[in-house]
Design a protein around this nucleic acid. Structure first.
Lengths: 370, 370
DNA sequence: TTTGCGCGTGAATCTTTTC
DNA sequence: GGAAAAGATTCACGCGCAA
């Protein structure tokens, strides 16, 4: 394979720059088959109705930017089709793309990727360790976003740094679900007023894993929805070249300043990646879901004086009380608190056994995975 | 709302049966708006090939030389469109659907759900605690599947047992990512040869969470791709009615045997933690009528910063405002809304107590009368 | 200097009933 | 059917400040 020198590459490509303009037009102005990897975080087309307030009455600062508004699925689909086609033309034959989205748009992107002949390699779930809760209690906490990783075509010999990712993951093969915190604190860029500079800034840890896994040093990475430049920042740290496209002046300005401060091989993002692990917490309800205890089954207190029945939602019902294993135990003992795991016992083969034994079984299973 | 009796329901619907045949034809033979929830795990191995028609209605031959990737998408989309339309017709106005799939098919299903007017409520990731590793080291371990939960239409008042799921999850609201093991061991059904009876048998724990969360006892649940009947088994345990459709004789046989052994849990165990919304309404004025609070008595805000006087008609009067407990609270806090029941406190024996306590007393009395 | 508490906030398709 | 009122509802963190 012929590898262009850095100088030859720079002659034809505007490397390590942020290009101003509409992403489709700008992409169409770049040479075909020149890009190794594309990372794209397009508008999600959220369809928000009224305002939303937290239970403490504070107002949620929603994504209500003009750039996220589309009048119909048809118009959004047209947009998706056009930018994906432009992106595909730019990819080298062995190139690949990552797109990220939520249920509002990701199904439409995924279907269009397939329609255009991209070859899906994985869908990868970013499980947020600290998502915004569902304030009204009407749905599940929206705790993840979905990324799709696809090569340009089925025959592409795409880059996958299996061993590097395995090393990042404490020696175990990297899975399709990644637990990472959202972008907050010092990493979150602010504007002159101290407000967030961009409503949807992605964490560097996410891009770190994407770029370590699917590019090599010297590769050219294109981000057609550059925003405040997380892709460029991580690419620079990791010794990759980037091209950003962004049509909003304010975002370009923030990104330019950010990039000027980045040094290659900055280790900070990496440390975040590894230190944030989801602690395995075992809910009593899991024992019921998994059939280790059955709804209707009786539990006895350690002292043998009380009993209670298991319900389908993982609560207990006693003579005059319903609630969690801890609440019911405390109530029956007239105590301010109670550790239900050690208090309650179930019967197996005529023997009474603490339910904590079942929790230990689940924890052992979970531990096997690391 | 008119609720059909069990007998009336059974007269029109083939409850708790496995129907033989093509799922679309069978669904079209059932009465419209008769189903509360649909759970669908459609096939996505493109072996549908031999049983499907092209959009122009020509039959696809099993050894079709013209067959390519794009033909297969078209045919799969046609199939998806048809079964989803049939499913939507069957749903009651407040009904909902769950579909499950992997990146091979879930994007196409999600887009078609949106196209048909279903309203996506969440995408939920089933994170497998024990997935099959990726042996070739060329991709990420495929460690999850995606479910989409959608109501029939945007206006549907879908069922969501928020408190029950919260209880199941140790008192923290349930997230969109569920960690559950795959179906193995005794739960995994075997055929006469000791081989697995079905290639993609879903774990009962998954259906347990789906059905506890989005149905009530007595609801009718349809599974158009019944397989070995996990949906039916869990529905039966949980005191729900099911209808299964399965065209493979071998699967129907295994499922029938499986279902015959299932026992419903105790009625008591099936009652789950209820939300406050399910409680009967009590007007604040009732507390005054009953003499639990006296006209002229003072109430204090939870934060101690404000006070107001009770009036004989069950309204409050503050320094510069009169109105309901909610209106006065909201005004004093400068908030868009306020739950007066938890905001206001009254004095008894020198202690400040939330007025919600009085409401609970009344509700308890009301419950006793039934 | 350390610990703890209060406050702010994050890609959100986030209510139900009565008049 | 539309407007208004009633009433239900949050988790994980980072930061600043007080003790």
């Amino acid at each position: 394979m012929v590898t262009k020198t850095k100088a030859a590459k720079a002659a034809t490509l505007p490397l390590n720059q942020i290009l101003d303009g509409d992403c489709i037009e700008v992409m169409n102005s770049l040479p075909a088959e020149s890009i190794d990897l594309i990372f794209a975080d397009p508008p999600y087309n959220l369809q928000l109705r009224g305002d939303l307030h937290r239970p403490d009455n504070s107002k949620v600062d929603a994504v209500d930017n003009d750039w996220d508004q589309f009048d119909s699925f048809k118009i959004y689909d047209r947009f998706t089709k056009d930018w994906l086609a432009a992106a595909r033309r730019l990819l080298k034959p062995n190139g690949a793309i990552w797109v990220i989205g939520s249920y509002h748009n990701v199904f439409r992107m995924g279907a269009e990727l397939q329609n255009q002949g991209f070859w899906i390699l994985n869908d990868v779930v970013w499980r947020k360790s600290n998502p915004m809760p569902n304030f009204r209690g009407k749905r599940f906490t929206n705790a993840h976003e979905t990324m799709i990783w696809a090569s340009k075509q089925e025959a592409s010999k795409y880059t996958f740094n299996y061993e590097a990712l395995k090393a990042l993951n404490e020696g175990v093969q990297m899975r399709s679900d990644w637990v990472l915190p959202i972008c907050t604190g010092h990493e979150r860029l602010k504007d002159e007023n101290g407000d967030k500079a961009h409503p949807t800034q992605k964490p560097e840890s996410l891009l770190h894993r994407v770029l370590v896994g699917s590019t090599n040093p010297g590769d050219v990475i294109l981000d057609p929805f550059f925003g405040t430049g997380t892709t460029g920042a991580v690419a620079k740290m990791l010794g990759r070249d980037f091209i950003g496209i962004e049509r909003e002046e304010a975002y370009r300005k923030v990104a330019t300043k950010r990039l000027s401060k980045i040094r290659k091989f900055d280790k900070e993002a990496l440390e975040v990646t590894q230190s944030k692990r989801a602690e395995p917490r075992v809910a009593f309800g899991v024992l019921v879901e998994r059939g280790m205890l059955r709804p209707g089954e009786e539990l006895w207190s350690q002292n043998g004086r009380h009993k209670a029945k298991v319900r389908a939602d993982g609560t207990l019902i006693g003579d005059d009380i319903k609630g969690s294993i801890h609440q019911v135990g405390a109530h029956l003992e007239g105590a301010p608190s109670c550790n239900g795991w050690t208090y309650w016992q179930f019967k197996r083969d005529g023997q009474k056994v603490p339910i904590d034994l079942l929790r230990q079984q689940i924890r052992a299973e979970m531990a096997q995975q690391h």
